[in-house]
Every structure is written in C-alpha cells, then in structure tokens.
C-alpha cells in the first residue's frame, strides 16, 4: 500500500466524518461530550490500572504498601505463574500456589469451547428469531413468550439436571459437554435478534417472496446480511460471556483436554476457608485471560463499524 494511497484514504475518511450527519456539529456540544467521555474512560480505567499494578507485585510484599500506586517489589513472577513457567518452589516463594498450569492448552480449550458455543448458538438463535420476527404463523407470539420465560429460569434449576444429563451422555470432561446446554439457543440471543429483525423493512422480504425465493434463501441472503452488525455484536458479547463463565465449565471439564482458562486460573482463589487469594496471580491471570477477547473485539469491532456505515438496517 503506497503512501499516497494511505493519504487518500485518510482524506476520504475525514470527508466521510464531516458528512456523517449522526455526528454532532456544535463546538459546545463537542466540548461537553468529549469531557463526559474522558471522565467515563478514567473511571473505567483506574481499577484496571490497579489490576496491572497488582499483577506485577510480589504477593508476599503486597500488603507492606497497600496504597502504593506502583507495583510493590516489581516482579514478573505472577505472570510466570499464570503462564505455567514458574516452578512450584518459585511460586510458593512469592506466595503463590504449588499447583501447575498448562496455560497454552487451557487457552486452546477456551477458544474451542467458546467458538463452538457462539457459532452454533448465534446461528440457531438467528433462525429462531427469524421465525419469531418475520414469519407469520398462528400462535407465534405465544410461543415466543414461552421461550422468553427461559430467561427467568434460575440457575439452581438448570445446573444439576444439565450436569446429570451431560454425565449420562458420557460427555463429562469434553469440550462438547461444556458447550452442549448453550449451543442450541439462549433466550437472550433470540430476544436480542428478534428485536432487530422486527425493524427490517418487510417490503424487501415481500418482494423476494414474489420473486419466488424460499424462506431459507430470504433468511440467508437478505435478513442475515442486513442485520450483520447486530449479529456480530451478539456473537462478541456471547463469546465474552462464555469466556468468563466459571461454575459450569468447572463442573464439567476437569481433564487437561477440557479445562478452560478460567477454571485453570481458579487455583489463584483462596485455598483455605479463611485464606486470602494470591492477589498478584489472580490479577495477572484475569488480565492475561482478557487479552485474546480484547483482540477479538478490536478485530471484529472494526467489522461492525465498517458494515454499519454501508448498510444500516432500515
């Protein structure tokens, strides 16, 4: 890509900014809007900075200076513990745990499980949302209301029966077992997509029907592309949610080949009833675990913005 090319692009981008009617124009409004954004960003970032500072501290020395804004007794130890590079002796010397972590394996497991869940769930939920939003059939709204009740089913009802089912299917300690209960649908995903599908202009669909397109083709070639930004948004949100999920993957996946990252990093939590967590290891683990999804968000986030500029559900 030549320099001129970049320059031209930047100019085009700036021009498009100036043209974008949904951006505010008034200088005063811009000032206060910007100020508000900066405040939000600062409040958002401070606790995260605190996590960084803690993640590079020596756990043994941590509370000698509990208010220090800089890492206490700076060390890469917690990071090494998280990545499974520290020996148990080294870990214990810095107040960590003697258990071991197979970081790369757990990371791959997490990626596999979350991808499996997200792809299937979003696909199946889009199909259901299409049926609920854009198809006409008797009892549609009643069936949708019943599906919506699933949103209210408390976790204590689903946890044990689902666990027993997964066990009886012989899927304990498999990625599939972890994914199974959420692969088909979640009420949230259906509800979310239906809401956007409802906004799609029906005349486009009716025109396609007249052209003789079947429902699957309409869904594939019209509805999905039109709602693509929202579908990707949903996929990202769900992926993050399952990435951070703990109790279910903990119960189902305990083998090395099925242990997810959150579960593997769980060893930094308190080990005795009254004990304190390995603060540094815990924070380092949380930050490292957030990196892949942060990258994912940036990559796909750009896609959202890109497609939004061109399409826009109408």
């Amino acid at each position: 890509m030549s320099l001129i090319d970049v320059k031209a692009r930047r100019a085009a981008k700036q021009a498009s900014r100036a043209d974008d009617p949904s951006l505010a124009k008034s200088k005063v409004a811009k000032f206060f809007g910007g100020l508000a954004l900066i405040i939000v960003i600062l409040i958002t970032l401070f606790p995260i900075y605190w996590m960084f500072r803690t993640a590079f501290s020596n756990n043994r020395a941590m509370f000698a200076e509990p208010l220090s804004l800089l890492p206490v007794d700076f060390t890469f130890g917690p990071l090494q513990r998280v990545l499974g590079l520290a020996t148990p002796e080294e870990a214990m010397a810095e107040g960590g745990s003697g258990a071991s972590i197979n970081f790369a394996q757990y990371m791959l497991n997490s990626i596999a499980a979350c991808t499996l869940i997200t792809v299937f769930q979003v696909t199946f939920s889009s199909m259901a949302a299409y049926a609920f939003a854009l198809l006409n059939w008797k009892g549609r709204d009643k069936v949708f209301a019943i599906f919506l009740i699933a949103l209210m089913v408390p976790g204590i009802f689903t946890l044990l029966p689902n666990f027993i089912l997964v066990k009886d299917l012989g899927l304990l300690n498999t990625i599939l077992g972890i994914a199974l209960p959420t692969m088909f649908m979640t009420p949230f995903a259906i509800f979310f997509l239906r809401q956007f599908f409802l906004g799609i202009n029906r005349s486009i669909i009716e025109a396609a029907v007249i052209d003789g397109a079947n429902q699957w083709r309409i869904f594939r070639t019209i509805v999905v592309p039109l709602a693509w930004p929202q579908i990707i948004t949903l996929a990202i949100l769900q992926f993050i949610q399952y990435w951070n999920d703990y109790l279910w993957p903990f119960l189902v996946g305990q083998s090395e080949s099925s242990k997810l990252l959150t579960v593997g990093l769980g060893i930094f939590k308190s080990q005795t009833p009254q004990g304190n967590p390995d603060w540094a290891g815990l924070m380092a683990g949380a930050l490292v675990a957030a990196v892949p999804i942060f990258i994912l968000m940036l990559v796909f986030g750009r896609k959202i913005v890109g497609s939004i500029q061109s399409s826009g559900v109408k």
Binding site: F124, A128, F147, T158, L180, T182, F184
Partner: peptide, 15 residues
C-alpha cells in the same frame, strides 16, 4: 427454523 432452538429450550430450560 425453530427445531434446533426448541431442542435447546426443551432439554436445557423447560424440563
């Protein structure tokens, strides 16, 4: 369109 979602709904929520 609703078959896959219904399986999930019945097995993992309704039941």
């Amino acid at each position: 369109f609703l078959i896959p979602a219904s399986i999930g709904f019945i097995v993992f929520f309704a039941w």
